[in-house]
Design a protein around this nucleic acid. Structure first.
Lengths: 343, 343
DNA sequence: ATGGATACTGAAATTAGTTTCTTGACACAT
DNA sequence: ATGTGTCAAGAAACTAATTTCAGTATCCAT
């Protein structure tokens, strides 16, 4: 179909595009015209108006601001009751999506406390995965990112520290240093101590583990124990420790692969050795020390009513100094206190 | 169909509603779920999610911010070239909608310069209509609002000062005082002077006119002359003055019902008396005096390439000290200057 | 209790908005 | 010239969102 005349060159310089975009934005958002009308009056097609508006959003010409009523009462109560340095409580009622919102909030928090050149440590879990997913790209440089622990399996689908470290490093590419910890501790139980010793003789592993115990900002997930909770329990079963056993030993949760009871005390029982001896981790006691140091942020991120007992354990144990959680967990933690929504 | 059991009372206190709203807002705007998904996961219907989101917008929980690239170059140039106190230039290319955007911008400007208790004067026109339409309700109190002019017709559809004064007063109801000027000057031309004199002997009219000449903020439209321009030309024709005649007399525009030429000089020709003697208006010379007074804002609002000559007249004549216009008019006014969009 | 005004709901109908798909223009290599 | 990859455009197909509508519950005055 070549018999039509050449169309005149359209001068489609970027200035023209920008103007069209601005016109669309004004008419759409300020004067509430619909896209069809705008298209007609500006001599464009629907599709183009739609695309221009989308682009305007992408380029930050249009921004959506959310003015959420805050939940400071709960935050203050948490800080006071558990001696925290800071706490953030997101609204409840998000159901399945609580983790995503927790992740978003934690990401914003991290970006507030972090700075170029600091050392960052990550534990594991789905909540932290969402946190890292929500980080803005290229926001920092010269970070050093450490896994706070390493496990001996190569197959479990859970989100391991190494993976998360890689993901975070990818966000801040290319000006960051990411470290990995591998702990292939698969010997039979009676030989495991020898194997650990060998592993720890490795200079590099020792150094990484030591530096991981000294990060400026640590992001921690909190695992809970129950039949249908993935993560830690899956790992435990892999090493032959069933959730029932954990419950029988009064384990209520886990932080950085270390199981603790309702008082936040790390449970170190012989029955758990086949599990605990097979991971390499910055010890919970070290996390507690960090939490007390000036300028160190040890941030635990976890929410949902079901996690309340585990969170309580972590807070009682003093393994973090900042908590990011949701309304439901916060209410359960503070139990006596009435909800903020009933004035 | 009453044989179903009573449903348990749903505790639908406002707190619950608010929570649902917040959940929707977060999931929709922050996590980019669509309304169907949100409805499913929160156990609501599509419709409800849609309504909650709309309400959230209405209540200011969600706000849309526009970051428009500014046009300060043109503004500065206008200020310098015409000795203005301030100028605002909106983007061009809005076509039919330019007046709406001008109105919005002028409304925001007015709200910035106005304050409780001041005196406000309004001339007429569609642009000012849009300005007033865009004012936020209950924003001020104890205003005194005056028409800057009055005409002798009861039938023309144009937006007269009295109407606009009423509209503005309605916005700030009930704590404002609105004044009206009526000038029923319909006598034959030879008796018109006597009629005017009688009218002006009325104490109240004299007082209102005098106060109108002393307002703190004046909002002025600018009329242009042409075959297809409504407003002033319609009024002129009503009194038997055809647009051609106006053009022949070198009238390029009109401000507050007073025709002026390209140099901004008010045209006072015998041929126009049948028109000009039938309106009552704060004289253009008084507007010029006001413009020079400290603390008085005389704001002219007009845009579009076609209005450029009229605007130039107003600026040359010094009848305003603040101009709100659009890119097209600004470029025409500054003619030599290259456009901001070609860097 | 009873009637009626009001407000809220979800399903369905309607409208609005986005994405896909095809085409054609253009730049550049062959 | 001719092929080829990129790009942007509109039409059409599709998806998403809003509004209407009809049915109920609630509240209040009788």
């Amino acid at each position: 179909m070549k018999f039509q005349a050449h169309l005149p060159h359209r001068e489609m310089d970027s200035g023209q595009e920008l103007k069209e975009m601005i016109s669309c934005v004004l008419l759409y958002y300020r004067h509430h015209k619909n896209q069809k009308e705008i298209a007609q009056h500006l001599g464009l097609s629907h599709s183009k108006v739609s695309r221009l508006l989308k682009r305007a959003y992408g380029e930050g010409i249009v921004r959506v601001e959310l003015n959420l009523p805050q939940l400071p009462r709960l935050e203050t109560a948490l800080i006071e009751q558990f001696g925290l340095r800071d706490a953030v409580v997101i609204p409840g009622g998000l159901g399945e999506y609580t983790k995503e919102e927790l992740g978003w909030t934690a990401a914003r928090y991290f970006e507030r406390v972090a700075a170029n050149g600091i050392k960052v440590g990550l534990s594991c879990g789905y909540t932290l995965y969402h946190t890292i997913k929500n980080l803005r790209e290229h926001h920092f440089r010269d970070l050093k990112i450490y896994p706070l622990s390493a496990e001996s399996t190569l197959t479990l689908v859970d989100l391991f520290p190494n993976t998360l470290v890689g993901m975070m490093a990818a966000k801040y590419r290319p000006h960051v240093t990411a470290y990995a910890l591998h702990a292939q501790l698969i010997a039979p139980l009676e030989e495991i101590d020898r194997e650990r010793k060998l592993l720890l003789q490795n200079q590099e592993i020792r150094r990484i583990l030591e530096e991981a115990g000294n990060v400026d900002v640590a992001l921690l997930g909190i695992g809970s124990i129950g039949r249908d909770t993935p993560g830690f329990c899956t790992l435990a079963e892999f090493f032959g420790v069933r959730p029932d056993q954990l419950l029988a030993l009064e384990v209520v949760g886990e932080i950085n692969y270390q199981p603790f009871d309702a008082q936040g005390k790390i449970v170190e029982r012989e029955e758990l050795r086949k599990l605990t001896s097979r991971v390499l981790a910055v010890p919970a006691s070290r996390l507690r020390e960090l939490s007390r140091q000036y300028g160190k942020s040890v941030i635990a991120v976890a929410g949902g009513a079901k996690k309340a007992p585990s969170i309580r354990g972590v807070l009682t144990g003093g393994y973090c100094n900042i908590l990011i959680t949701d309304e439901e967990a916060a209410l359960a933690l503070l139990d006596g206190l009435p909800s903020g929504s009933h004035p």
